[in-house]
């Protein structure tokens, strides 16, 4: 499903070239639950932006469901983000003035999907928040906000869900709930890619990729998988 070959990203910084990503190769199959780990500056955010089609690589290839992402135009990238990728952020990134339902519905509106309200409501139900559909983010707890964000990520039935430190802003109990939700989704065959620097969180994944200095230094399958 995801095929990455010799992918690199080089930034110009004050006349100097900095390789945030220095040629990585890996494959991720459908239904996998992968954690990408590494200290800050290791290139995991850069990799996440590339996988999430928010950015284009300097060289190398990235194939998502057979589509060569590196050749796409900005509008095509926006379409790929809309249809095939769901984002979950550390700081939730919900629209503050829109209700939970409207936030969840937003990707469907940009994708011009009919019956968007019904589908969005189903997604909220799936994360256990159907009863809070008419509430605005400010009226929801942190855990609830992250559930809305997950519902929004799910709503377009994407190929992958990318989660960037999804528990970073939550207390440990709520964080565990969110991780349980991810486990459930993974059991329903949703492909998950998790970026984190917390060992505990990463341990919940079935596969862990360790990054350092823009390279993958370890790629191990995690037998335990679930908690």
């Amino acid at each position: 499903m995801i095929e990455v070959e010799n992918l690199s990203k080089i930034y110009q910084m004050g006349g100097q070239q900095v390789a945030a990503l220095a040629g990585v190769d890996f494959k991720i199959e459908k239904g996998e639950f992968v954690a990408i780990m590494g200290p800050s500056g290791s290139g995991k955010s850069t990799l996440m932006n590339l996988i999430g089609c928010l950015d284009l690589p300097s060289s190398g290839t990235y194939r998502l469901e057979g589509l060569d992402i590196q050749d796409l135009k900005p509008n095509q990238l926006a379409e790929v983000r809309n249809r095939r990728i769901g984002f979950v952020f550390q700081s939730f990134n919900l629209l503050p003035r829109a209700t939970a339902l409207e936030n969840t519905e937003l990707p469907l509106l940009y994708g011009r999907v009919p019956k968007s309200t019904e589908i969005a409501l189903q997604a909220l139900e799936r994360v256990g928040l159907a009863h809070r559909a008419k509430h605005k983010p400010t009226e929801l707890s942190g855990g609830e906000r992250q559930r809305v964000a997950i519902a929004r990520a799910l709503v377009n039935s994407p190929a992958i869900i990318l989660a960037d430190e999804p528990t970073g802003n939550l207390d440990s109990a709520t964080g565990k709930e969110i991780m349980d939700l991810f486990q459930e989704l993974n059991e329903e065959a949703v492909t998950l890619i998790l970026v984190t620097h917390e060992q505990e969180v990463a341990q919940q994944a079935r596969r862990i990729m360790q990054m350092k200095d823009g390279k993958i230094i370890a790629d191990t399958s995690n037998g335990a998988g679930s908690c």
């Binding site: 900005p74 926006a78 983000r81 984002f87 629209l95 994708g111």
Partner: peptide, 16 residues
Amino acid sequence: TREIGIRKAIGAKKKE
């Protein structure tokens, strides 16, 4: 700016 970032991440095109 952040709202625009969110919209773009979930697939809003430049035109939109």
